[in-house]
Design a protein around this nucleic acid. Structure first.
Lengths: 133, 133
DNA sequence: CTGGATCCCACTTGATACTG
DNA sequence: CAGTATCAAGTGGGATCCAG
């Protein structure tokens, strides 16, 4: 994809930005601390196409408990990634939708997503080889 | 960066790829399970410029314990992201370097990295507003 | 210098029961 | 339907001591 030289450039450019801010390069942790938990990413991806109701999400994300779904949604809402809309009705109805910021975050996960798609086999092979030793 | 229409396209393209594989969209978790722990990303970024010794990494990553550094390096080695080279010498010397696969992974984290850089303020603002309610 | 082995705590997650 | 409250269980990670 890119040459070693190009990689170097990218990295050093980012390192320079970080240095200028007086921050450490391990800044990615900030995202991971935020969306690196077990379910947040799944929720964000489920909201990619359209807003969803609580029970829709619960149904569409296999294995999630309502407790964890609530926690994930609250966290995403707090960080400004998700909008929560309560419809005054009986039975109650709540819709969750991605904010522009949330959609932006989703965009930025795609390269990583794509990468996994393209390299899962490589990783599995590396693991098999390592474990066989 | 991209329009809403483009986002839709991207997402649906990826969703199609995933569907064709019979896999779930929450596939990003595979990466996060791998490098989403507290230190792996930091290690990968420290190895960006050049190979490093164990003690160099330990010194350059503030707060990491040798136990966690070992664990992170083992995991990265197992997945084929890092190469471990033992130099027969006294005192012992071990170098760690990114493999092509590891460098590729590093590349794919940059968009996310960049995104955090550009939106930390937005997120902090969103949090303050949420917490103030 | 580069780790391996243990102990232990804190936090995350899951299961279950209950409510507006 | 959309949560909250509580409790049990599992796990990640730090501290410490030891070894090649």
């Amino acid at each position: 994809m890119t040459t070693g030289a190009a990689d170097e450039t990218d990295h050093q450019r980012i390192a320079a930005v970080l240095a200028a801010r007086g921050e450490d390069a391990c800044h990615v942790r900030e995202v991971l601390d935020r969306i690196g938990d077990k379910w947040s990413i799944a929720v964000v991806h489920k909201l990619a196409d359209s807003p969803r109701r609580f029970s829709e999400l619960r149904r569409d994300i296999p294995g999630i408990s309502q407790r964890m779904l609530t926690a994930a949604l609250r966290g995403l809402e707090r960080d400004g990634f998700v909008d929560r809309t309560v419809h005054a009705a009986v039975p109650p109805r709540v819709d969750y939708a991605l904010t522009p910021l949330g959609r932006d975050l989703l965009d930025s996960t795609w390269p990583l997503m794509n990468w996994v798609l393209g390299h899962t086999d490589d990783i599995r092979a590396a693991r098999r080889e390592y474990d066989a030793r």
